[in-house]
Write a protein that binds this DNA or RNA. Structure first.
Length: 190
DNA sequence: GATTGACGCCGAG
DNA sequence: CTCGGCGTCAATC
C-alpha cells in the first residue's frame, strides 16, 4: 500500500529556533520533496525518508532549506521553480508526487499566486476550465513542495481557510506571516 | 462501477 | 451560525 522508492536521494535540513525544515534532492540536484516544519530533526527527515528510504543526510548548509524557513516566517523570496522536479512521475513513484496532467496544471496555477494574496479552490478550477473543485483540493493536498508552491494561499470560496496537510493552524500562521488578515477563521477582505 | 475527497451552494433550523 | 444534502469530477479501489 505504502509506495516506496528505490532511488537514492540527499536530504538537507535547516533549523530555525525550534523548527526543523528538510529538503530532498535527486542526484541531479532537482528538489523531489519538501517537508513541512517539524519539532525535531528526526521528524523532519522522516517526512522525506518515509517516501524515499534510500537517503543520505547532507551536512552542508543548504540554501533551499534556509529559504524554506524564511518563507515560512513570512519573507517574500523569489524562488526559481527550475529547481523543482515538476515532471509527471510514473505511477510507481511515491505518493504526493505529480502523476497526472491535471495535478500538474493545478500545481502550476498555485505556483503563480503572488505573495500576500489568496485564491479559492473554485478559482483554480475555473482557470483550468473545470468544475472539479474538490479534485483541485485533492491535487493541492498532494503538493510535494509545500510553502515553496504556496498551497497555503488557496482557500475556500466562503472565505474560510480550508484544509492543510500540516493542519489548518499552520496554514493560518503562514498566511498571517505574509500579512493576510484573518478574523473568526475567515480571510478578511477589505 | 463504487467510493472518496484540503470543495460549493442552498435551504432549514 | 451550523448542519445536511446534493452537485460535480478526478483519482483510487
Amino acid at each position: 500500500m505504502n509506495e516506496k522508492n528505490k532511488s537514492k536521494i540527499i536530504i538537507s535540513t535547516h533549523k530555525h529556533e525550534n523548527l526543523y525544515f528538510a529538503v530532498g534532492y535527486s542526484e541531479k540536484k532537482k528538489i523531489l520533496r519538501i517537508a513541512l516544519p517539524q519539532k525535531s530533526l528526526e521528524d523532519a527527515v522522516n517526512e522525506i525518508s518515509k517516501y524515499y528510504p534510500n537517503y543520505q543526510l547532507s551536512n552542508e548548509n543548504n540554501k533551499t532549506a534556509q529559504n524554506l524557513s524564511q518563507m515560512y516566517h513570512g519573507e517574500n523570496i523569489d524562488f526559481d521553480l527550475e529547481h523543482l522536479e515538476l515532471d509527471i512521475c510514473e505511477s510507481s513513484e511515491p505518493k504526493s508526487t505529480i502523476k497526472t496532467s491535471f495535478e500538474r496544471d493545478v500545481i502550476l496555477k498555485v505556483a503563480k499566486i503572488p505573495y500576500g494574496s489568496v485564491k479559492t479552490y473554485k478559482e483554480i478550477a475555473k482557470s483550468l476550465n473545470s468544475h472539479a473543485y474538490r479534485a483541485v483540493g485533492t491535487a493541492i493536498g498532494k503538493n510535494p513542495f509545500p510553502i515553496i508552491i504556496p498551497c497555503h494561499r488557496v482557500i475556500r470560496s466562503d472565505g474560510k481557510i480550508g484544509g492543510f496537510r500540516g493542519g489548518t493552524p499552520m496554514k493560518v500562521e503562514i498566511l498571517k506571516n505574509e500579512g493576510i488578515k484573518i478574523e473568526a477563521s475567515k480571510i478578511k477582505v477589505d
